[in-house]
Design a protein around this nucleic acid. Structure first.
Lengths: 338, 338
DNA sequence: CTGAAAGCGCTTACAG
DNA sequence: CTGAAAGCGCTTACAG
């Protein structure tokens, strides 16, 4: 590894001068010296030692992407196509801003704080917050600027990018209502623990109310995650005497599971059961019938996160930044008219 | 941030002594002193400054996961479910070994070298190598121990974890032959640039040969990536006068695309066209019919990568470590007998 | 068992 | 325009 000192020696100047050339402080170096130094820098492909810089600046140019370890899924959150997409987008955008990206799965807030302090992390992004209690604690205790994705608490000073979940729930339910459905179910994880799911449920209620309806509790399926949860629900629906004619799912994977299970039980989708997903993730275009779903702008969300993060890094006192992204219905083939 | 110096001051000892306590050099500290120091360390939740450590040790405890930017897909490789899974597994395993994980998408080898040097990266993993030429250059020039996934060059000193691709190709073709198929196509990206695809193709040839057959060039579809490539191919197949009765794809997403396009053109899968994928990734269980595919042990691969990496970090002179993982056929519903 | 000194590679005031 | 000095937080020999 070539160091500033060696470059300085070869150029016959002080390390200070080399440093000034690197930082383009050209008022402090004569053009001739600068050029001579620059040639040597290029010759050795000199790159600065980030550890040394970090030690002085008390910063690191590292952004930590925080991924809660979810006990329900033994494996990393990165298995989720939405998470993969989000991480990929964030990495791309952050690299453009000359930040490095560390991925950190974690179980406890203490672990996060350790990482933030040991590396003097410049900024953190919480992706797929699981339990609200942990998210709240992290918001309060994070020692680096933090942007939370998909969660917002009114009563806490925080920074966040969310999606209009209530509108998402509303749009999907209304779409079904307009197609003539009246028996509309709701499939998702427990409503209690997550405000996101709760908001989508509220939107679903809103739409029903507009048509003078209320949710039928028998058709509200909770505590169901991912594909397995969807399949379980699909089997239950297939076995019902009085079935819903349509369901909305809080996640594409759940919708896929419902469709698979119902299809296997001999029901036809969408003729006998219409299904709407949420996320517009990869699988929604892969399955047949292609899934009608609520699309969120992942690239836009990532851009919002990076924008807020850059502001926070400049001014850590800032707080209360909240970007709420719009959602839209993507009509494909999993909904029929009645 | 609490520093060693502050801890030392409060304990009334030298920084050296605190350092020894932290590193469990208990022969160099009296038990009483150690305990007193430890209490203060705990009280302040002291964590070492990695930048300072890195500066001295010329190491970083950072492993870089290198993701080539593939121009075909504008977005990051992390969109690929296999990549997400691999990154997630590697992160989990590396964290257990007290390494931190940086994700680095890159276009040029120079970019990788810069990152490795600027952070004094301890080890690197190349995921989803795209062009063999870039992979070879990286193998030659990497300034940190490098493990390549899914690619091996006999003529280069390198370290790698691969999958028995030839066997994978063989298994899928033989499965179809045993089900009575004789008109078997092959769908994948260009064979030329990638040894992986080439090996799968060779395995496909092997199986055909056992049955006295040779590939029909009209049914070998190249230059096709991901779902779009699959759909394109599916449309071509649907439009053919003489169609294959089955195809093997080099990637689940391609298989999904073929199935979708053929289904939309009114063909039924598997009755009119049997399809086998490769990877056993998420979508294979999501689509209907569920995809028969070649499964690879991603967790095992990740474990192999970490194992080799740890050896290399201990002894950078080591080379030629190559783990080849077995593959197996996962039978689901996308293959019919003729 | 304990500590003073030197130094990792860089930047930040401060002098000239 | 250029440089000598101090110091970021830690560890590594070396003394006592």
């Amino acid at each position: 590894m070539v160091t500033l000192k060696e470059i300085a020696a070869e150029a016959g100047v002080s390390v200070m001068t080399v440093s000034n050339v690197i930082h383009h402080n050209m008022t402090r170096v004569s053009p001739e010296t600068a050029e001579r130094v620059r040639a040597i820098i290029d010759k050795y492909h000199y790159v600065p030692n980030m550890a040394a810089r970090s030690l002085i600046s008390k910063a690191s140019r590292i952004v930590a992407l925080l991924l809660p370890l979810w006990h329900a899924t033994a494996d990393s959150l990165l298995l989720d196509p939405y998470v993969g997409q989000m991480v990929g987008m964030l990495e791309t955008l952050l690299r453009e801003k000359n930040y490095y990206v560390m991925i950190c799965s974690f179980e406890t807030v203490e672990q996060v704080l350790s990482i933030q302090r040991t590396w003097q992390i410049d900024g953190s992004v919480l992706i797929m917050p699981h339990k609200d209690s942990i998210t709240r604690e992290l918001v309060k205790r994070s020692v680096s600027p933090l942007v939370v994705i998909d969660r917002w608490f009114d009563d806490l000073p925080m920074n966040s990018v969310t999606v209009d979940d209530r509108k998402g729930g509303y749009l999907s339910a209304r779409h079904l209502l307009e197609k003539g459905h009246r028996a509309i179910g709701f499939v998702g994880p427990t409503i209690k623990t997550s405000s996101v799911i709760h908001d989508r449920y509220l939107g679903y209620e809103d739409a029903l109310r507009e048509f003078g309806l209320t949710p039928n509790p028998k058709w509200v399926f909770n505590k169901r995650f991912h594909q397995e949860g969807g399949e379980q629900t699909g089997q239950e629906i297939a076995a019902m005497r009085r079935r819903p004619t349509a369901v909305i799912a809080t996640e594409d994977m759940i919708a896929c599971g419902v469709i698979r299970a119902c299809t296997e039980k001999g029901m036809s989708v969408p003729q006998e059961l219409s299904v709407i997903g949420f996320d517009d993730s990869l699988p929604s275009r892969l399955i047949s019938p292609a899934l009608t779903t609520i699309a969120q702008d992942v690239r836009g969300k990532a851009a919002g996160v990076v924008e807020i993060l850059m502001e926070l890094i400049k001014d850590p006192e800032l707080t209360g930044r909240h970007i709420q992204m719009d959602v839209s219905l993507v009509e494909r083939k999993s909904v029929a008219s009645v």
